[in-house]
Amino acid sequence: MDELLFLRQEVAPELLAGVWMSIKLIVPSAIFGFFIGIVSGVFRVYGHPVLKRLAGLYVLFFRGFPLLVQLYLWYFGLPRIGIYLSPFAAAVIGFSLCSGAYHSEYIRGALLSVKKGQLLAAYSLGFSKIRAVFSILLPQAMRRALPGNGNEFIYLIKYSSLAYMVTCIELTGKGSILANFYFKYLEIFAIVGAIYLVMVSIATWGLNYLEDRIAIPGFGRPKYN
């Protein structure tokens, strides 16, 4: 009984603050990352050769460097050239760019899977390349990419815990501090893990809902019911 009271009074408010910080990290990183992924994915398939190359290099580096190393570079490395980022900003930038590199691959694959005839048909109606990509190809590609993108969102929820390593104290950070302070590693980390599980479940549910909403007959996932 004491235990429960302790958890509710001492641990819960702290962890809740951590959850809030995690959400503040995850949501913008997810949005920016997704957007970066779309743009670089499009560049990699339909961009000017120079853009194609640049986007390819971007993906190479940001998938190639360990995320923790990227975060260290943003937070501890950049001051060397006079740029000082807050822990929060460093984390959001690091997550967005890393996430974007993975999204880019999903989008690229999906764009490549759209039949060539779709682009020809758009051209034959007088669409420019850019307009065809945005009105015809992306709406189809996004539907195919969404399961992969969803996977990346779920990864992001969990690797947001790395923000702790650049002193941005989110859920895992709070958990560590509390666990060290009260010496209750099992209880607190079990709770922290469960909270991530809840966040992941909510995201999964939301993504499934979205997939159903944008489902089109004969296109990728069948619409049940």
Binding site: A121, S124, F219
Partner: peptide, 29 residues
């Protein structure tokens, strides 16, 4: 693009836009 608007093209395998219904296929151009 102006020229292509003037020259309609019908393909062997239709190439309808798969994500749009019949009305929107016709509407989008």
């Amino acid at each position: 693009t102006a020229y292509r608007q003037k020259v309609g093209m019908i393909f062997q395998d239709f190439n309808l836009f798969d994500h749009l219904n019949a009305l929107h296929n016709v509407l989008i151009g």
